[in-house]
Design a protein around this nucleic acid. Structure first.
Length: 278
DNA sequence: TGCCAGGCCAAAT
DNA sequence: ATTTGGCATGGC
């Protein structure tokens, strides 16, 4: 490959590696001193040196958008609650940003996520890409397979990628998209509640997965996916148990418009320390 | 080895 | 309306 012009993007309050490993995307590949990610069929090589992000000049706009460099991190931090849990999470996760993921890749990936650890979700994503994905010029791995491709695959083929009981859900959901019975892009214009309802009609999509897609792909920064980690933390914060929806409402009241950001910091901090804050 | 993982769904209470 | 059990797989 010929060397190409690099853009140097000023990216204060951004920690690339931390963001890539926070359980939002699962396919980032080490490349040179940086990383390679795939975005909408484009291989994006990115390297961080201090507050400077190096990306190919022709992909500067794509990088700014994908890495959400326009999110007002200082304002978001100012909105964080002041309890010890949230403070500890903020102190240890600065620079973590909520990415803007491609819709179907995010939805498909999180349909495969139930009862799987982050490392397993990555394995399944890489297996699906290797088996069904389209080659991308210059990429270390293949693109996330299109709905049409997964809809045409057999359940056994998907199980061979390690999906287990999730194979059926992924195939059926892909079929809904491929047949045009649900237009993911059109949902961008809809209110959060209606997007959530539409997503939850898909097989294998409940509130948790829908909220992941709302937060990571539909830019709904107030959406809070409540998984087992977040449930434990929220119950500790409010000193009593509750249903998942009660915990969601608690986080909405306590965390505000950027509740999704607070949630992501709590999740990553808990996972990194493998414990609840004292 | 046994336990748990960024849950969902249908059946049972 | 709410709770329970089953579901596949793999790392620790």
């Amino acid at each position: 490959m010929k060397p190409r012009a690099l853009a140097e993007i000023s990216a204060p309050e951004f920690d690339l590696a931390r963001t890539l490993h926070s359980g939002q995307i699962f396919h980032a590949m080490p490349s040179g001193a940086g990383w390679q990610v795939l975005v909408d069929g484009i291989a994006l090589a990115v390297e961080q040196q201090g507050e400077i992000l190096h990306v190919p000049a022709r992909h500067e706009a794509l990088a700014r958008r994908y890495f959400a460099l326009d999110h007002p991190l200082e304002s978001i931090y100012a909105s964080f609650p002041t309890d010890p849990f949230s403070r500890a999470a903020l102190d240890s996760c600065r620079g973590l940003r909520i990415l803007r993921q491609p819709l179907w890749e995010c939805l498909g990936t999180f349909i495969t996520s139930p009862m799987k650890q982050v490392a397993h979700i990555r394995q399944m994503s890489l297996s699906l890409r290797a088996r069904f994905g389209r080659p991308v010029p210059g990429a270390l791995i293949q693109a996330y397979p299109a709905p049409e491709v997964l809809a045409a695959a057999s359940e056994d083929d998907l199980r061979a990628c390690g999906l287990g009981f999730r194979a059926k859900s992924l195939r059926l959901a892909a079929a809904e998209i491929a047949a045009g019975r649900l237009d993911l892009a059109a949902l961008r214009e809809q209110p959060t509640t209606e997007v959530r309802e539409a997503l939850c009609r898909l097989p294998g999509v409940g509130r948790k997965v829908a909220n992941c897609v709302l937060l990571f792909a539909y830019e709904r920064l107030d959406a809070v996916p409540v998984d087992v980690w977040i449930a434990r933390i929220l119950q500790a914060m409010r000193r009593r148990k509750g249903t998942l929806e009660e915990l969601e409402r608690f986080s909405a009241r306590r965390f505000g418009a950027y509740a999704g950001y607070v949630q992501q910091y709590l999740f990553h901090h808990a996972r990194m320390t493998r414990s609840l804050p004292a």
